Simulated assay, not measured.
Amino acid sequence: MNGDTQDAVTRRRKIGRTDLEVTALSLGTAPLGGLYHELTEDEARATVDAAWQAGIRFFDTAPHYGHTKAEHRLGDALRRHARSDYVLSTKVGRRFVPRTAPDDGSEGWAAPLPFQAIYDYTYDGILRSFEDSQQRLGMIDIDIVLIHDIGRVTHGEKNAHYWRQLTNEGGFRALDELKQSRGVKAVGLGVNEGAAVREAMAEYDIDCALLAGRYTLLEQNTLDDLLPECEQRGVSILLGGAFNSGILARGLDADAQGDLKFNYGDAPKEIVDRVARLERICREYGVALSTAALQFPYAHKVVATVLMGARKPEEVRENAASFATPVPSALWDALRAAGLLHEKAPTPQ
C-alpha cells in the first residue's frame, strides 16, 4: 500500500459533535456474514487484515449479518490489536435466539449461523442486544451503537408499533444509558431510508446515521432534505452502499449481465440505463466507475466516512487504491452537465 493511498484512507472526520473520529474509508462487514456468498474463516480474517494494512481504523458490524456470524469473525480479527487503535460500531434492535425452523434464504445470507431474529427496540431489548454483541465480539468497549432497520422499508405497517418501542417503551432512553454508563461514545441509526433518519432527529438527539445508499452517484435526492438537516443539527452520515449493492462497482461488464444488483434487488432498466451513461463518461476521462462512485460521497462534509464491503483482501486493496486515485475535475463537470449530478452536489477537489 503506497503512501498516497494510506493518506487518502486515513483522513479523519469527527462524528457529529462528539470527539470521536473515524477514517475516511471504513469496512462494513455484511460480506463477512456471508451476504450472497459464503467465505471461510481464513478469508474473513484475511479481509480484515487487509483493511488494517490499508490504514482503515473504523469497522462496522451487526448481529443481523450472517445471524451473528460477522460479529464473531470481526471480533476474532480485531482482538489482536490495541483497542484504542480503532473505532468499532454495531447495531441493536434485533435479538437473536436459537432457530426453530430452517432458514429459507430470503435474507441473502449464505450459511448463516442457526439463530433467528426477534425485533425488539424496547429499553430491555436494546440493552440485552448490546450485551450479547459484547460477548460475540469478545469486547467490552463498543464506540458507536446504531438502531438497526427501524423504518417503513423494513417494517411496513408494523413500523408504528416498533417506533413506539423507541419513544414510549424506553428504546431511546437505553441509548442514553449506553452513552452515560456503558462507554458508548456515539449513537444513531443504521437504516436504508432517509425518512427514518429525519423522523429520529425530530424525536432524539442522535450523533450519526449509517445510511445505506441514498447518497451515491445514482441517488442524490437527500441533498434536498436530509443532508441539509443533518448539517444543521450536527449529525454525521456514515455512508454505506456507495456501490448501490454492486452495480456501481462492476458497471455493466458483460460478465455481470443477468446479475446486476441495485439496493439488494435486481436493477431496473432505468437504473441500468443511468449506469451506462455514467460509465460512458467515466471512460472518456480514463476513470473507473467504481473510483468515481467511491470518492463522490466523501465530498459532502456531513459524510464522516465511506463504508465499503469486501469479501476478500484483493477487493479491499482495490477499493483503497480507488479511493486515492486522482480524478480530474473535468469528470465531475461532465457528469453535472449530463444531468447525472444534483446541482447542489459537492464534488471532490
Rank of each mutant, 00 (worst) to 15 (best):
R12V: 00
Q6C: 01
Q135T: 06
C208W: 10
H342K: 13
G194N: 07
R164D: 11
G188C: 11
K301I: 01
G28R: 09
I281T: 08
P268E: 13
W109P: 01
D132Q: 13
H148V: 05
L88K: 01
S129F: 05
H81C: 00
V187K: 09
G258Q: 14
A70R: 01
L25W: 04
G55M: 08
Y162S: 08
M201I: 10
L248K: 08
V272Q: 13
E279F: 12
P114L: 11
L226W: 02
D132S: 11
T100M: 09
W109L: 08
L175F: 05
R152M: 06
G93Y: 11
N319I: 01
A267H: 04
R17Y: 00
K158C: 02
R173T: 12
V187Y: 15
C282L: 04
L239G: 07
S84C: 01
E21R: 13
A345T: 07
V87I: 11
T5C: 02
A267D: 05
D42R: 10
V287H: 03
K69C: 05
D124Q: 15
Q134A: 04
N192C: 05
E38H: 03
D141S: 12
S133T: 08
G16F: 08
R317P: 00
A160H: 09
A209V: 03
P348V: 00
T154K: 07
I15G: 02
T100E: 13
D176W: 07
P297N: 11
